[in-house]
Design a protein around this nucleic acid. Structure first.
Lengths: 142, 142
DNA sequence: CATATTCTGGATACATAATATCCATAAAGT
DNA sequence: ACTTTATGGATATTATGTATCCAGAATATG
């Protein structure tokens, strides 16, 4: 139940690019500024390209730009580009039927958790994150 | 970002016991009825014992009972017994300082997600789950 | 056209965590 | 004594996340 490093890398790359959405940013540049292993970043960027979140230009002076405006990129978009469809429980087999029990006492709770999470991710845009610098000392639920 | 099988096992065991909270249920019995590998279940039960969620009796006709009433056991209790403190991002090092950036655009969102999740888990008791049989076809956020 | 630069795609290796198994021991009932 | 059941720790197995490598394609520049 944790945010993966990979997703963190993706968000960091996008916020980095998002600060100058028009300028092209090369993988090398992103990698260095955000401390992300270059080769791994390559893999991440491919997924973001494939999902239409960033645009890529090959060749010298190539790099990446945002394809949409920061306000039109939700964290859900990013999440799903990296991790695939959001699904916090994996209790369903191919037929959508749990082979153990016809009735599952847990399903409803996890569903609520997931729905609430999706809602927040959907409401949060890259733009909002870009405007959120300098916020610290948040209350953590310990 | 997924519920682990282990946590699922724990909840299933507890709902199983919770149906007859007074009766002692042996690991063997739970294991068979809930299709959980016996030895693995042993490990899980130990944690639930240690956290005061179930009570154990050794010897013939031994087994487990709930230590508290189902209404007093929250899913958060179970989660934390199994997984430890809830923390969906692991971006903090020992000093609580992110060594990469002084300002993190993501932190606030993940915090919101976590808080909302903790809230739901805290509000949900074992009792509620026990009364939730037969609920199906929930809307999943796809 | 030749060259350097940068992204692409797939294969592969490595690390870490989740899951599972095993065994020797202690507790307790008959 | 003997059987049953939980305990504790060690270890193995598997899956997933993370990282590396390399050959190839696109493209700008001189």
């Amino acid at each position: 139940m944790q945010v993966t490093k990979t997703l963190d890398y993706a968000v960091r790359s996008l916020t980095y690019i998002g600060h100058e959405p028009i300028v092209k940013h090369s993988m090398k540049e992103i990698s260095e500024h955000q401390h992300i292993p270059l080769n791994y970043l390559a893999k991440i960027m491919r997924r973001l390209v494939k999902k239409g979140i960033v645009k890529s230009m090959v060749g010298p002076d190539g790099g990446y730009t945002l394809r949409k405006s920061p306000g039109d990129i939700s964290l859900r978009d990013i999440y799903e580009a990296i991790e695939g469809e959001i699904r916090i429980v994996d209790c369903m087999d191919g037929n959508g039927i749990c082979h153990l029990h016809q009735t599952c006492p847990q399903l409803q709770v996890w569903d609520r958790v997931q729905i609430s999470m999706v809602k927040i991710l959907e409401e949060t845009t890259l733009e909002q994150m870009l405007n959120q610098k300098g916020i610290h000392g948040l209350s953590r639920a310990n």
